[in-house]
Design a protein around this nucleic acid. Sequence first.
DNA 1: GTGTTCAGGTAAATATTGTTTACCTGATGG
DNA 2: CCATCAGGTAAACAATATTTACCTGAACAC
Lengths: 197, 197
Amino acid sequence: MEKKNTPPGKIKIINAMRTLLEDRNFSSITISDIAATAGVTEGLIYKYFKDKRQLLHHVLKEYYEYFLLGIDQDLKGVSGALNKLRKVIWVSIDRYATHRVFARIILLEVRNSEEYFHSEAYDLVRQFNKILLDIIKEGMASGEIRGDISPSFARYAIFGTIEHACLNRVIFNEKVSIDETAEQVTHLILNGIKSRS
Amino acid sequence: MEKKNTPPGKIKIINAMRTLLEDRNFSSITISDIAATAGVTEGLIYKYFKDKRQLLHHVLKEYYEYFLLGIDQDLKGVSGALNKLRKVIWVSIDRYATHRVFARIILLEVRNSEEYFHSEAYDLVRQFNKILLDIIKEGMASGEIRGDISPSFARYAIFGTIEHACLNRVIFNEKVSIDETAEQVTHLILNGIKSRS
DNA sequence: GTGTTCAGGTAAATATTGTTTACCTGATGG
DNA sequence: CCATCAGGTAAACAATATTTACCTGAACAC
C-alpha cells in the first residue's frame, strides 16, 4: 500500500500499527508494542514520524489514498445523481465492512485531536466529501433531488446514517450484510421514514 | 449536578475535568492538570476514580442522568410518534449545541475504549436509545412511519444525521442555529432527499 | 473521657510510556 | 578512496499515570 522505495523499516512500522489496531485501540498501543511487532527499535519510529499520533494519521492517509483511487473508477459510467449516490453509499459501507482497521481509525480514533484536522489524511477526507457534495448539487440541478434542503445537510444525513449503521460492527465486531445495509441506508436517505399518505 | 453528601474534593475533581474539557481534548489533559485545577492532590483522584478514563465516564454519566430526567418531561403531552420524534430531535440538537463538553465527550472521546461500553454511562445511553426506538415502533404500529424499514436503521439515520449536523460545531466551535438545524434534520429524516415525482 | 475506626485528604515514590540523543554501519558517487 | 548520508540502534531522558504509606479530625462505642 505504501509507495515504492520506502525504507523497509518504515513499512514494517506502518504494518505493525495496522496489525495492532486490529484488536486494540490506539491509546492502549504503546510505542514499544509497535517497535516489537515491527521488529525495529523505538527510535526508528521517530525517524519517520513526529509522534505516535502522526503515525496513526499516516496509516489513515494510506487507506484514503487507496480508496480515492477507486472511487473515480467506481463512478465511471454511472449516470444520474441518484445512481451515483447509491453507488457511493454502497462503496462506503463496503469499505467500513471490509476494512475494520480503517473504520476504527476514522470513526473512533482521530477526530478527538486537533492535529488530525491539519493532517494530510484530512485533506483527502475533504476531497472525498467534495465528491459527494458535488453529486448532491448535480442532483438538485437536474431535479432528481429536492431543492428545498441544504446540500451540506444532505451530506450529513448520508454520512451520518452510514456511520451509525456501521458503528456496531466496528465497535463490537458484529457481522453486517453489506448489501442489506446499503439497501436500507439508501432507502432511508432517499425516501425518509414517513409514510406516504 | 452531583448528588448531595458527595465529598467536596470529589466535586472539585469532577468540575475540574469539565472545565478542562472546555478547551482541551481528553488525552492532552493530565492528572496533574486536573489536580491543580481542582486544588487537590493527584492521589485523591485515585481515591474516587479507578483511573483517568473512569473519571471521564463519570462526567458523561452525570450529564446523561440530568438529560434523562428531562426527556420524560419533554415528551409529556406530546401525542403522535412523529411529533414525539420532532421533539426528541430538537432536544438532542439543543443538548449538543448548549453543552459542548457533553457533546465532545460522547461524540469524540469515549467510544474508542472498550471500558466505556461496560460503564454506567453507557447504560444510560442505552436507555435513551430505547426511548427513541419505542417511538419509532409506535409510529410504525400507528401507520405514521412506513413499515418497510428496520426500526434500528431508522434510529441510525436519526442519530447519525443529528451527530454529523452537530459535529462541525463541536470540533471547530462553530455556531449553529438550533431551530434551523432541527428543522433541516427533521425534514430530511421524515421525507428523504429524493424529489417527489 | 478515652480509645477505635474511618472518611477525607496529602506527599512522595514508583511504573509506564513517549521522546530525544548520540552514535554505528554499509552503500554510493565525486 | 573518502565524504556523505540513509537506515538503523541503544540507552538516556522526560512526562505522566498510578500506588503506597501516611496524616488528621470527626463520630461513635464503651
